[in-house]
Design a binder for these strands. Structure first.
Lengths: 198, 198
DNA sequence: CTTTTAATTGAACAAGCGTTCAGATAGGTT
DNA sequence: AACCTATCTGAACGCTTGTTCAATTAAAAG
């Protein structure tokens, strides 16, 4: 039996997931048919329904598990100075997202194709992640390390800026991941920090 | 006859464009049928083909005209100090994009659904816009106003950050457009500027 | 009013869609 | 060998898709 149960029902088999991930990222959820996914896996379309109840669930689980992994991968470090934690967050966010460009793409692009209930779940998870960054910024504001008039806007600005890396970064490009992370951290640090002199 | 010719062939009638814009933004290109667009306009599906040769062209013209308008709306100000021009760019980018959230959404989300030839056109236009920001940053680096180790990365970072506003801004939200622009300009200015003291 | 021209319908086309399911196949256990 | 069970096929279901086009309606021109 391919169906298994975990703390989340983990219905979808890994081969089906990988194929769906690849195709959804490349062509979009609505543009990819179950038959195309099946062909990628090497089975007939009917066989997919041993691994997922329907196409919608396939998309939802991809997103949910991605956000679960994103949340699980980051450990809050409240004992550390805000600037240090923000640097860790910045580098972690870039590294994590560059390792999963397809999932990042899907998680941002296919929100429209989720059913309302599934959308609500995904939005909650995303909000939880944003709150972690906001907490760091608020801690830094309180400590006087950061100079920001609005922690919520700063959160959105930093996340948009960092996630944007996935849209242009190429492993065979001009700069290494480390170099990119260094440069972005430099900009983030300045953006949230105090005003320059003169 | 509904077909007209301009410097660009402007095939698509405005009512059809508006309906397609609305539906593509809400549900996605691949998820919206010609029959749905026709219903929104109030005609049968066949009538759409008086205004567009096919669905692909409908999408392409939406994107192309959006980017044309974006490029046309910004006048380069090389006589002005880089910091001043960057502030104008920042505020203009936010204002322009907040006025057209649907088009912005489509222009970023539906690139995958363009034919290769159409994609190349759109990417060229987008690159031209990015180059304008990069030119400002390079001018500021040369003048010593900005402290950036990589103008290309800074360009991508600033555009991602600014465009991200369209994903969460609501007219009935907590902050006005001006307030948002003020806060974002503050962060952009610091991000590209010199390091803070201490 | 008649003729010409433009705009639109409505049916049709071949193809593809998500999903179901009876039946075939394969692998492991007795 | 026979049995069991998990896996998968292949056909079928009803429905939707983008696009075409002869026939019709509406509007404009004479």
């Amino acid at each position: 039996m391919a169906r298994k149960q975990g703390s989340h029902a983990q219905i979808t088999g890994p081969k089906v997931r990988d194929a769906a991930l690849r195709l959804f990222a490349e062509h979009g959820f609505a543009a990819v048919s179950m038959r195309q996914i099946a062909a990628e896996v090497g089975v007939q379309a009917g066989a997919l329904y041993l691994y997922t109840p329907d196409k919608q669930t396939l998309l939802f689980e991809l997103m949910r598990d991605h956000l679960d992994a994103l949340l699980a991968a980051w450990r809050v470090r409240e004992a550390v100075p805000p600037l240090v934690e923000l640097e860790a967050f910045t580098r972690h966010h870039i590294a994590f997202h560059l390792d999963r460009p397809d999932l990042v793409f899907i998680a941002y692009m296919e929100l429209r194709n989720l059913s309302p209930e599934n959308f609500a779940v995904i939005e909650t998870l995303r909000g939880r992640y944003e709150n972690r960054l906001e907490a760091i910024l608020q801690r830094g504001i309180a400590a006087g390390t950061f100079d920001l008039s609005d922690s919520k806007l700063a959160t959105m600005a930093v996340i948009a800026m960092l996630t944007g890396v996935t849209t242009w970064y190429r492993d065979d490009g001009r700069l290494s991941r480390e170099a990119v992370a260094d440069i972005y951290w430099d900009m983030v640090r300045k953006a949230v920090g105090p005003n320059p002199p003169d």
